[in-house]
């Protein structure tokens, strides 16, 4: 028996022990879970190439089988909010898990008379869904318009050290026509209450 053969079982045993003891891959190497996004965030954003600013509050919360995203947006055209042309809108979107891992579909109110059917892009339906890829929660909405060209709206929220980066792009037949980028910080609960 050669020296190499003699030590092979020992080497194999050491390797096996090392594999068992080795720590799991870093969290950074894995896709985030939806729970990682739960929380409230505040920050601002700007539409690229314009002076249109947005003050944004986002709250992501768990719901049964999924999550909801509340977004409050103050639309201003200058550094100050308290101007005559300031606008505000708020919306909540809710998504529930599909059979595909990390893919969510819009929650629809259940009706005993409604027949469950997939959205039909060609019939003018909006195809909306959400997914988690790496550390990004993406919300997507797509339409094929009457003349056959398509619109795609991509809203992505990526976890960062302080909170999340947000990005919105609207594509018209594959060409980006509107881009918004911003940074939000994860908030802490105000326990002082004063």
């Amino acid at each position: 028996m050669t020296a190499e053969r003699k030590y092979l079982p020992v080497l194999a045993a050491i390797l096996a022990v090392l594999l068992l003891v080795a720590p799991p891959a870093k969290a950074d190497d894995q896709d985030s879970n939806v729970e990682d996004f739960f929380g409230a965030y505040v920050g601002d954003a700007v539409i690229e190439g314009t002076m249109q600013f947005r003050d944004i509050i986002v709250s992501i919360e768990p719901i049964r089988n999924g999550f909801s995203i509340y977004t409050s947006t103050v639309i201003r055209t200058g550094p100050k909010r308290a101007t005559r042309d300031v606008k505000w809108r708020a919306e909540t979107q809710s998504f529930v898990q599909t059979d595909v891992p990390h893919v969510y579909q819009p929650m629809v109110r259940k009706s005993m008379f409604a027949e469950k059917r997939d959205p039909d892009l060609m019939a003018g339906d909006t195809l909306a869904w959400a997914s988690i890829r790496d550390h990004t929660l993406g919300v997507y909405a797509m339409n094929v318009l009457e003349d056959g060209h398509y619109e795609l709206r991509v809203f992505e929220r990526t976890l960062t050290d302080i909170g999340m980066d947000i990005s919105f792009v609207r594509y018209n037949d594959g060409i980006p026509v509107r881009k918004l980028k911003g940074k939000l910080a994860r908030t802490k609960a105000d326990v002082d209450n004063n």
Partner: peptide, 17 residues
């Protein structure tokens, strides 16, 4: 349409312009 877009079934369409 074959539906099941969320499961990865592709959709195709075309237009003349």
């Amino acid at each position: 349409s074959r539906g099941r877009l969320l499961e990865g079934v592709p959709a195709f369409w075309a237009r003349l312009a």
